[in-house]
């Protein structure tokens, strides 16, 4: 509905403009009048530029020679307004050519200041910098006034830290394949710098999410780091290597170790061992055996008046480089005997 109204209005305006041009083509006197109007306006403009004017120019400010342990707050945007007197040509040319060149101040030449709230910084009375600012202006420009009269520059404490890189990944494998160890990251840590108050809170730098599915071989990929705002990192990307290999399933029989019983009692569990099953990459096949596992039972509950019918098995030792670890049974029955 709204679109139809706009379109109708557009067609109406287009009609009026077309009618006006048609009339202009037919009226020669009007054309001659317009040409001379343009020429005379040009001459008037050139004449006007020869006159002297006062103008206020707004300059960005750049600070150099900062102490090594200090930095400008990220959101700090200093500007200086300079009132100048010059002929129109100079002002126009300066605005066209130098509008974006900042005025430069050396922090080491400014005076230190600490506010009541503990904020540290430096300041300078801009009028004392008049000659310096005038030097940065174009020839033919007379500096009349500078605003603000005092330029305060807050300085934040700069912090550096070496933090580990943490990989964020969503990885899937083809059937019969698994990840053969930790993802290798190069470099595994980065140096970050920025406001100390922020750097001190950063414990690691995370990568952008790696999304790789259906892997059946080792993959190496470059992944960008997610660097927090106002913080700089020594590197922007890291190389992540995801080791992939086919796996095999292994079953092992692990004897149960029992504790928590007084010497006067003997306990027999059924079964007396458990079966652990797990997956392991073929490169590690043969390196894992029964000695890498330990299965225990705390038999002390049998001393209670409400002794349980079954005791729970706990796997208290297992290698870290295996997958899909499970064991059976989880509970075992037992016979309790008194020793003679």
């Amino acid at each position: 509905m709204g679109r139809d109204v706009i379109y109708k209005q557009y067609q109406k305006v287009q009609g009026i403009v077309r009618l006006w041009f048609d009339q202009l083509k037919q009226d020669k006197n009007l054309v001659v009048f317009l040409i001379f109007l343009v020429i005379s306006t040009g001459f008037w403009f050139l004449n006007a530029l020869r006159k002297e004017y006062t103008a206020t120019l707004s300059y960005p400010v750049k600070f150099v020679d900062l102490p090594e342990n200090k930095m400008l707050p990220e959101d700090f945007r200093g500007r200086i307004e300079v009132k100048v007197k010059a002929v129109g040509f100079v002002i126009l040319r300066y605005q066209l050519s130098n509008a974006f060149l900042p005025l430069t101040f050396s922090v080491s030449e400014m005076q230190s200041l600490k506010t009541a709230s503990g904020e540290e910084g430096v300041f300078t009375i801009t009028s004392t910098e008049k000659n310096k600012i005038a030097g940065q202006l174009s020839q033919g420009m007379e500096l009349i006034d500078i605003s603000p009269d005092t330029l305060f520059v807050p300085l934040a404490e700069k912090g550096n830290a070496r933090v580990p890189v943490k990989i964020l990944a969503d990885i899937g494998f083809q059937k019969q394949y698994l990840q053969a160890g930790e993802i290798m990251v190069q470099p595994d840590s980065v140096t970050i710098s920025g406001p100390k108050s922020i750097v001190d809170t950063i414990r690691f730098i995370q990568t952008r999410k790696i999304d790789l599915q259906g892997l059946s071989d080792t993959v190496t990929t470059n992944v960008p780091l997610v660097i927090p705002p106002r913080v700089k990192s020594s590197v922007k990307k890291v190389t992540a290597t995801i080791p992939v290999e086919p796996f095999t399933e292994i079953n092992l029989k692990i004897p149960l170790r029992i504790y928590g019983l007084p010497d006067s009692l003997r306990i027999k569990t059924f079964p007396s061992s458990i079966q652990v099953s797990f997956r392991v990459g073929i490169s590690k096949y043969g390196t894992i055996d029964e000695s890498h596992f330990s299965a225990v039972i705390d038999a002390s509950p049998v001393l209670r008046s409400d002794r349980p019918e079954r005791l729970k098995v706990r796997l208290d030792k297992a290698p870290i480089n295996i997958e899909s670890l499970s064991f059976s049974p989880i509970f075992v029955e037992y016979l309790l005997e008194k020793k003679n």
């Binding site: 027999k268 059924f270 079964p271 007396s272 029955e333 016979l335």
Partner: peptide, 10 residues
């Protein structure tokens, strides 16, 4: 076998 182990322990 588990059952027989219980008998054995008896």
């Amino acid at each position: 076998t588990t059952i027989c182990k219980i008998f054995e322990s008896l």
